[in-house]
């Protein structure tokens, strides 16, 4: 209402008001605070406060399930570091994150190059590669459980066709982790491809032309020109992938639930189990805090690298 009024009366008011400089474009001094308050409030309530509350609560413990929680200081952390399950989950997280990084980055590079070379003609292909990004971890898990089913899955049927005997992927303690890595990479790779493709498209074509004139082979051009010039995007996608896999729970939980016999229990999965299966919430909060610290170190590394390459955050 006020808006339309303002519109109609606007031209009639004499233009004696001085043009406001950009810095004071608003109505009053309070405006920016009023404008940003809801966002700051919601984000504090959902992200900042729960974390602080969680860290504080990790210093408490109920002597027995159902009893009141008492302050125990760092005892939950001491217990965590004494727990062999913690160390094995840390080890598995290492395998999981490294596996996802290696597979995700190499496939991401390969696919980004492929899309870059075919740009113009296959624009729809770029749109289509985003498809895995649009579906939930659970739907992805359903698909990959079908794909890797030992009796009726396409993977083993194909292996069988070539005369190989495929393993029973998801019930094998050695292969289940491979399937989890595969699925996680599948859900995460669209952003990696987009990032690397964006980087490829900003590379100055004249460098490549010059190299071509000098007789560099395709491999040499990729190895000594394109990949070094792609370094910022490679670093970002690496950091982003490690963030996503280190803190990722959805794929593991939906696909294997940490099994068989704990062989895919990463730290995030371990935290979930301690909290919602063993109902030792305070102990789980100690684990969550540990994951948060690991992740914060990663994020700070990201900021430093981004500054180094003068990437806008």
């Amino acid at each position: 209402m006020t808006v339309t009024q303002e519109q109609t009366t606007g031209p009639e008011t004499p233009p004696n008001k001085p043009a406001l400089s950009g810095a004071q474009i608003g109505q009053s001094r309070a405006t920016p605070y009023l404008f940003s308050f809801p966002a700051i409030f919601v984000v504090s309530a959902v992200l900042a406060f729960p974390v602080l509350y969680g860290i504080w609560q990790s210093l408490y413990r109920a002597p027995e399930l159902g009893l009141d929680e008492e302050f125990v200081g760092g005892l939950n952390y001491v217990d965590m570091f004494r727990d062999p399950d913690f160390w094995s989950s840390l080890y598995r997280t290492g395998i999981f994150v490294t596996g996802c990084l290696v597979v995700g980055t190499s496939l991401g590079l390969l696919f980004a190059f492929a899309l870059y070379r075919s740009m113009g003609r296959l624009r729809w292909m770029r749109a289509a590669t985003l498809a895995p990004y649009l579906i939930s971890n659970v739907a992805a898990a359903v698909m990959f459980r079908l794909l890797f089913n030992s009796e009726l899955g396409l993977i083993n049927t194909t292996l069988d066709f070539f005369g190989f005997d495929g393993p029973s992927w998801l019930s094998s303690t050695t292969w289940a982790m491979a399937v989890v890595i595969f699925t996680q990479v599948w859900t995460d790779i669209p952003l990696t491809i987009l990032l690397l493709l964006g980087g490829l498209m900003t590379i100055d074509q004249s460098y490549l032309d010059a190299a071509l004139v000098d007789g560099a082979s395709a491999w040499q051009r990729a190895r000594y020109l394109t990949i070094p010039l792609l370094a910022p995007q490679l670093v970002i996608s690496t950091v982003w992938l490690s963030y996503s896999t280190l803190t990722g729970l959805g794929v593991v939980l939906a696909l294997t639930g940490g099994g068989p016999t704990g062989s895919t229990t990463t730290m995030a999965m371990e935290m979930y189990n301690v909290a919602f299966r063993a109902l030792r919430f305070n102990q789980a909060l100690a684990l969550a805090t540990f994951i948060l610290i690991l992740n914060a170190v990663l994020t700070l590394a990201y900021v430093r690298v981004a500054r180094k390459y003068e990437i806008e955050l």
């Binding site: 992200l47 919430f281 948060l292 992740n295 955050l313």
Partner: peptide, 14 residues
Amino acid sequence: LLPRLVPSIGILVP
């Protein structure tokens, strides 16, 4: 930076 510092795994239990 906050969403990167605070992944959903960190707020799940709290």
